[in-house]
């Protein structure tokens, strides 16, 4: 398509993509590299010692508290991901298969709106809903369903999972919806025509074809939730704090940037490993029956 100047398409392509690429390089790649370098240094009060050391990683991996936080982050993010994707799939399926075409974008619009409203206030309101004297408990007590307030709702891992499942709902619904939309409807008719029941058609045709969307949904929910800060801090209580809270403490309160960096690097590493396992594992699982 090189049509108006003699410069080659490659040159023009690079020239056009250069501004966002350079921006991402200097404000993403360079900072991430800096965090990596910093994690191998050490800090005494305000001065940074630039000799190479593995001490931060030793501390991060041997201290039970850090290990606990890292493991808990993965567990909570994993639980959040499973809950969110399981709740999201039927919605995506409903909108894609049972909503008339001209109403689809209205439904997607309705689903995305809560996502764009103040995150902090939304999380805080879950505290109001789930609390001891909160909306849910008073409603259920008023209805006579329970006699005394439930205490397992707030300030623990449950509340973090519920809140995050709410916050990341559209992130899970949209990719699944997109992959369902791409499925040629005549494939489903072909499956029925070849003698499969509705349920088996769903299992043998719809689900495998929706797999890319499900994988995308899993990754797009899991990755940010591992590093979420606000939700564990507001509704997590002592049993719900996660690695991000510790990273923040190291950087902004204890002024130990190198240890905070090491924790950040470990968090990213964990995320990458889990992401790889998920995308490869599910990909294989879906392809296996062929």
């Amino acid at each position: 398509m090189a049509f108006w100047q003699s410069r080659s398409e490659t040159t023009k392509g690079y020239a056009t993509v250069a501004p966002p690429l350079l921006y991402a390089f200097f404000l993403l790649a360079v900072p991430l590299g800096a965090v990596l370098v910093l994690s191998f240094w050490s800090q005494e009060f305000q001065t940074i010692d630039r000799t190479f050391t593995l001490a931060n990683y030793r501390e991060a991996l041997s201290d039970p508290l850090y290990r606990l936080l890292l493991w808990r982050s993965v567990k909570i993010a994993g639980a959040t991901t499973i809950v969110t994707v399981l709740l999201a799939f039927p919605i995506a399926y409903f909108v894609s298969f049972h909503v008339p075409p001209h109403k689809k974008s209205l439904w997607i619009f309705l689903i995305t709106i809560p996502f764009w409203t103040s995150y902090l206030i939304r999380v805080f309101l879950w505290k109001v809903i789930l609390g001891y004297g909160g909306v849910l408990n008073s409603a259920l007590m008023g209805l006579g369903v329970i006699d005394e307030p439930m205490t397992f709702l707030l300030y623990n891992a449950n509340s973090v999972v519920i809140t995050l499942a709410h916050a990341f709902a559209p992130f899970a619904i949209l990719p699944i919806f997109v992959s369902l939309e791409k499925i040629d409807r005549s494939l489903l008719e072909a499956s029925r025509d070849l003698g499969e029941s509705t349920a088996m058609t769903f299992l043998r045709v719809t689900l495998p074809l929706a797999a890319p969307g499900v994988i995308a949904a899993i990754l797009i929910v899991f990755i940010p939730t591992v590093g979420d800060y606000v939700t564990p801090r507001l509704v997590g209580g002592p049993d719900g704090t996660m690695i991000a809270n510790m990273i923040q403490v190291q950087f902004l309160q204890l002024s130990n940037a190198p240890l905070g960096s090491a924790l950040a690097v470990l968090a990213m590493l964990t995320v990458t490993v889990v992401a790889l396992i998920v995308s490869l594992g599910i990909g294989r699982l879906v392809r296996a029956p062929k």
Partner: peptide, 15 residues
């Protein structure tokens, strides 16, 4: 889009 925001915040702070 897929990086935990705390990582973005921390790394920019470092730089």
């Amino acid at each position: 889009l897929v990086l935990p925001e705390i990582i973005v915040g921390v790394s920019l702070l470092v730089v």
